[in-house]
């Protein structure tokens, strides 16, 4: 085993470089509506659409993306879209009253 210890440092630095690249790419993909939207910031597998504000364009964009990629089924997508439209209308009415 000892004769392979010379590999520890190169392996460490290769891992270091790969991790740094992964981190940079992940940060690039972050958008504001991602906060609370998924169970993990970096793993967008399980969508949690109820946890985020319903009325910004980032939300709409990611909703469509999630539907396209299959993370949301059509029923859930329909429901969320309806909520989004309602929230947007409510917001617009409130702003008009102001």
């Amino acid at each position: 085993m000892k004769k392979y210890t010379f590999l520890v440092k190169p392996v460490f630095f290769i891992f270091n470089l790969l991790f740094a690249t992964w981190l940079v790419l992940k940060i690039e993909k972050l958008s504001p509506s991602d906060f609370g939207r998924y169970k993990s910031m970096f793993e967008h597998t399980e969508a949690r659409p109820d946890k985020v504000p319903q009325y910004d364009k980032y939300y709409l964009k990611t909703l469509v993306e999630d539907y396209r990629s299959g993370k949301l089924d059509s029923a859930m997508f329909d429901l969320q879209l309806e909520k989004f439209i309602d929230a947007s209308v409510n917001k617009a009415t409130a702003e008009k009253k102001k």
Partner: peptide
């Protein structure tokens, strides 16, 4: 080693 690890991350994040 920890410094070298964070140093590389700093350079990568800085470049980005």
């Amino acid at each position: 080693l920890l410094f070298q690890f964070t140093g590389i991350l700093t350079i990568a994040l800085g470049l980005s």
